[in-house]
């Protein structure tokens, strides 16, 4: 039992991630806004709003306004059809600048929701009189525990606990393999070669899972199974390099020779992986869709990250531990096998 405490810890962490990752609700947000006026706002118009997890009926002190160039235009009537559907009437407006309006809807349950660039027209007149108002926002927001609402991602944000830890696990196992390659090259003890080999084999499982799950997620959020992204191409090269490593190992019959060649190869592959996954995508000027890469903000820059962060770290640790669990089983099988072969 004493030796297995980390396995129990791993199971607990994964259960925590599973329950929290799937059950914590998403914060309310506005998904679509459709205006009845397409070309001009010179007459009164109606905006149909579709919200997600919103409380248009349940929320008291509700109101809505449009924002153009820092000037607010309040809705003259607020008709909630149900908790997620809303109709707003607006007076005629001549936009001050570009005819693109942000929409803000507020009530005391959801707080203030803002949809940037919600509606627009093809109107070319500028600088007219904009009916302004001071929205009477008295929001006593109830503090719900919820994951942040992000456009395009929506609920798929929960993949943060399943797709991203795959890569962390792969990198953790490869780091362990790298360390054992170095130990092998120091004394040429075949024990370390076995450790490194099994760690690489296990890491490939997580790498392949990361690629497949990432591909699926990319189809939904970025619109293609594979996009031209530095991070994606970097991981593809890394995976190919390590797949070549397993083929290379099987091609050399002599045990010592095989261990030496694969140790040197593996060290090069590891350094290349760090450059391709860790450094190149983070450089300014590169184009990447991944958060934290190519000048994109990482999720730690977002205001509501504190809800995601503890579960994310728990999930990363949990998946790394399960990776090492699988690796130890494989290593023990290999040890028994070599013992009997001798």
């Amino acid at each position: 039992m004493k030796r297995n405490w980390w396995k129990i810890f791993c199971v607990c962490l994964l259960f925590l991630t599973l329950f929290a990752g799937l059950l914590v609700p998403l914060a309310p947000g506005l998904i679509t806004a459709e205006s009845s006026a397409k070309s001009t706002f010179s007459g009164p118009f109606t905006v149909k709003v579709f919200g997600y997890n919103t409380h248009f009926i349940d929320g008291k002190n509700a109101g809505a306004y449009l924002i153009n160039n820092g000037v607010n235009v309040c809705a003259t009537s607020f008709r909630a059809i149900d908790n997620t559907h809303l109709e707003l009437d607006f007076p005629p407006i001549t936009p001050l600048a570009e005819p693109v309006f942000s929409l803000s809807v507020y009530n005391d349950v959801d707080g203030k929701l803002i949809m940037p660039s919600a509606i627009s027209t093809t109107d070319t007149t500028r600088g007219g009189i904009v009916p302004t108002c001071r929205p009477d926002v008295k929001v006593e927001k109830q503090d719900h525990f919820a994951f942040p609402f992000r456009y395009i991602l929506y609920e798929s944000m929960r993949n943060l606990f399943f797709h991203v830890p795959m890569w962390f696990t792969m990198i953790a196992l490869l780091t362990w393999a790298f360390w054992n390659n170095l130990r092998f090259l120091k004394g040429f003890n075949l024990k370390y070669d076995q450790i490194a080999n099994e760690a690489v084999n296990t890491s490939l499982v997580f790498g392949i899972l990361g690629l497949i799950t990432g591909s699926l997620w990319a189809r939904v959020t970025w619109g293609a199974w594979w996009v031209d992204d530095v991070k994606l191409n970097g991981t593809a090269i890394t995976m190919l390099a390590y797949l070549a490593f397993t083929v290379l190992r099987n091609a050399i019959p002599d045990e010592q020779k095989r261990a030496r060649v694969s140790a040197v190869y593996s060290i090069f592959a590891f350094v290349m992986m760090i450059v391709l996954i860790g450094i190149l995508p983070r450089l300014q000027g590169t184009d990447s869709l991944h958060p934290g890469n190519g000048g994109n903000p990482a999720f730690s820059n977002y205001d509501l990250d504190s809800t995601l962060r503890p579960f994310f770290y728990a999930s990363v640790l949990g998946w790394i531990l399960i990776g090492f669990w699988i690796y130890t089983i494989r290593l023990r099988i290999l040890k028994i096998k070599t013992h009997y072969e001798k």
Binding site: L26, Y52, S156, H163, L216, W217
Partner: peptide, 10 residues
């Protein structure tokens, strides 16, 4: 389901 299906698939 608000892109929830992709989480299930993953």
């Amino acid at each position: 389901h608000g892109s929830m299906n992709v989480v299930v698939a993953v």
